[in-house]
Simulated assay, not measured.
Amino acid sequence: MTYRLAAIGLAPVLFAQAAYTRRVTPRLPEPPGPRQGSAGAGRPLRLLIAGDSAAAGVGAATQAAALSGRLVSGLAHHFCVSWQLMARTGVAIADLVQQLDAAPRQAFDVAVLSVGVNDVTGGTSARRWLQLQSQLVELLTMEFEVRHLLLACIPPMQYFPALPHPLGWYLGKRSAHLNQLSLDGVQRNPRCEFVDPGYVPEGRFIASDGFHPAPDAYAWWAQHLSWRIVDRWC
């Protein structure tokens, strides 16, 4: 692919920019707040939210303002939601497979996954990405009985303010490539849905570190997911 060929010549610049970005980018904490609970009234819905720092809510002040809190709040208007958050900063897809494989088995109706940014920055190959994504889907649908699996797309990383050019351009190309592979795979599984929240990670949608979602982004993302879940389950 063209961007891969360009990256070979740009390798010294990309490595230098990546090292500099890691050094100067502020490290925001995961927000405090509950990571499991129940809310709402009506038809029961068992919800799992899992993945990386975005799933964990980095960029928000509390879990109530993060993805989990916003999503549960929206779904509680339609369901009695029993929910659990299994997410932490730095998780790549291999880590998520390992974490879920080691977790106690329980049943969920819906699972929302946010993973991939750390695979883009960490250099996970396309072949490895597809292999692990297949394992992840099988694990959740077979071992955790998930009937509706929503896979969040990797954000267009070329827009991240924390990433200088050409590093942002290169990571944006890699994220788009992994997203296309995910979309192609998900379309063959009726239990899976590939979800693009539809916002650009800049301005009011990006946190102070220039890398993570801001509260407005979590609200937008959660509303988009809520519509998808309600449409399928109501």
Rank of each mutant, 00 (worst) to 15 (best):
I8C: 08
L163W: 11
F15V: 15
V146E: 06
P44D: 10
P213M: 09
P12I: 10
L150N: 08
A219W: 01
A176L: 06
F15H: 13
P164A: 03
G40D: 07
L113P: 01
W83N: 04
P29Y: 06
P164C: 02
S38E: 15
D52F: 05
A61L: 12
T62V: 09
L132K: 08
Y218G: 08
E145F: 00
P215A: 12
P164W: 11
A55M: 08
V195F: 05
R232H: 14
Q63V: 03
S125V: 07
A61S: 14
L130Y: 00
P12L: 11
P156W: 04
P44M: 11
Q17M: 12
V200K: 13
H77R: 15
H165L: 04
P104G: 01
H148V: 00
G59V: 07
R88S: 13
A65E: 15
L100A: 01
G122S: 01
Q131G: 10
A55T: 11
P164L: 08
P26G: 04
G33L: 06
L113G: 04
Q98F: 00
A222Q: 10
P44F: 02
H165V: 01
E202G: 09
S134W: 00
L132S: 07
P161E: 06
F160W: 11
C153K: 14
I229E: 04
C153I: 03
D231H: 14
